[in-house]
Amino acid sequence: MRSKKEKKEIFLFLPRKKPFTDWSKLLKNDFKLKHFYKSKDLLSALLFSPPQAILYYFNRNRTVFENLLQLKHNFNLVSLAIILVLEEEDLEKLSDDRILSLIDDIILTSSTPLELKIRLSLCLHRLTRISDNNPLTGLPGNVSIELAIKKALESEVPLAIGYVDLDNFKAYNDIYGFSAGDEVIKNLARILQTTILEKTTNAFLGHIGGDDFVFIVPLSMAEEISKEVIQKFNALLPAFLNEEDLKRGYFIAKDRQGVLREIPLLSVSIALVPITKGKFKHPGEVAARAAQVKSVVKKIPGSNYFIDRRA
């Protein structure tokens, strides 16, 4: 017997009729169910306490469905499984690739309760098993990053790949501890995510690990996005520093040789590598070019971006 606390929470946005009432009768033995009938309540609960999965009846309000997808996308809620419940004749409405990339499974209204239960459990297991996403930020990890860069090399639209990392992050971690460090990283991830998504849908953001991120955006927007990320990071930084460090304007920490030194505060560096079709053949070449650009931008004190203008 499992205790109540271990039960995974599932939101249901289904009409109050058969077969759904039978479904929930069976599901409630294994899951903690929350029924929603008003879209406002559903979205509000999704924002403030997202569940493990949601069963969403496709024929209900499409704007709400759009918002649900938006939330999943904007907040990297990879661990939120969206399962669409639909009538057989609605299957053809699902040709939109964007929808398919954001939902996790579908189930037909003609399914039996047991079938649904097994599908739901499978879906939840699959999410924990195959995700290459970074556990801290929910952003795509190295496998996806490599795929995205490969795809970018073939793009007809000129793109830029941005390599983002923090300066003096090691000193910050030493002074404030790892969990504070993790918060700064999540913070940076959110800034990147919101800034990029507000500008363009034609974009990719991945988390290499630690304080290293990669984004891919249209070349025409790369500098504007970089500037905005830097500006937002600087504006939020005081929230993550204690007053002493903030007033002093630098950290005091031991360097690699164990000697106490003045170390500048956290800042963000972005190395931009423009990509035009045929310029690079292999993702490794981009990484090598990025390393050169990065060494330049790292030498400039404070938060900066630098764009590689070589052909």
Binding site: Q70, F75, E183, K186, N187, R190, T194, T195, E198, A235
Partner: peptide, 21 residues
């Protein structure tokens, strides 16, 4: 979302949440 008890102004919050959210 990972920023418990840190964000104290609307401006800061909006940078983290974004217009869409």
């Amino acid at each position: 979302y990972g920023f418990p008890r840190k964000v104290s102004t609307v401006q800061q919050a909006m940078m983290l949440l974004g217009i869409n959210v």
